[in-house]
C-alpha cells in the first residue's frame, strides 16, 4: 500500500445534494488500496456524518485525510458558528438542526455520536463564532 497518502477535499456549503460526494470519493480510494470493507465503512460513515454536519451547520469547510500503514486520519475544519456546548452536542438526540434538515433524513442528533462510534479516536475543538475542527483516526491494523 502507498505510504502517507494525503488527500484534500473542499466541501461546498450550498448544495445539500452534493453532501457526501467527498466521502464517496474517499471510499473509492480506500477500496482501491485494498482495505477491508469494515474499515472502509467505518471511515465512510464517520466522514459522511462530518460532511453532512459541515453542509447543514457551517456552510461547508475542508477535509484533510492522511493514510499511513497504521491508520487513517481525518481533519474536518469549518468556519461556521461553532459549538458552544460540546458535551451537549455529543449527546445522542441533541440537535439544533432545522425542520428542513430533518425532513431530509438528518438532524436527529446522531451525527457527532456516530462519528465517535465509528472512529477509534476523536477530538472536537470549537470556538463559537470562529469555527469547528474535528480530528478522527481509524486504525487499519488487525481487526
Amino acid at each position: 500500500m502507498q505510504k502517507n497518502l494525503r488527500l484534500h477535499y473542499d466541501i461546498s456549503g450550498d448544495d445539500y445534494t452534493r453532501a457526501g460526494e467527498a466521502s464517496a470519493q474517499l471510499k473509492q480510494v480506500l477500496r482501491q488500496l485494498g482495505l477491508s470493507s469494515s474499515i472502509i465503512r467505518k471511515v465512510a460513515i464517520a466522514m459522511y456524518e462530518g460532511e453532512i454536519n459541515m453542509v447543514i451547520h457551517a456552510n461547508g469547510g475542508t477535509i484533510d485525510v492522511e493514510i499511513d500503514s497504521a491508520c487513517i486520519s481525518l481533519v474536518l475544519r469549518d468556519t461556521g458558528p461553532g459549538i458552544s456546548e460540546i458535551d451537549l452536542a455529543m449527546k445522542e438526540g441533541y440537535s439544533t438542526a432545522s425542520e428542513n434538515v430533518r425532513s431530509m433524513g438528518f438532524g436527529a442528533g446522531m451525527g457527532l455520536p456516530n462519528m465517535r462510534k465509528h472512529s477509534d479516536y476523536m477530538k472536537l475543538e470549537s470556538t463559537p463564532g470562529v469555527g469547528t475542527t474535528v480530528h478522527m483516526k481509524i486504525s487499519i491494523g488487525e481487526e
Binding site: 445539500y16 453532501a19 457526501g20 466521502s23 459522511y48
Partner: peptide, 15 residues
C-alpha cells in the same frame, strides 16, 4: 420514505 439524494448517499456508505 426518504426520496432525496441522501438516501442514495447513505446506501452507498453502507454498501
Amino acid at each position: 420514505g426518504l426520496t432525496n439524494a441522501q438516501a442514495v448517499r447513505t446506501a452507498e456508505m453502507m454498501d
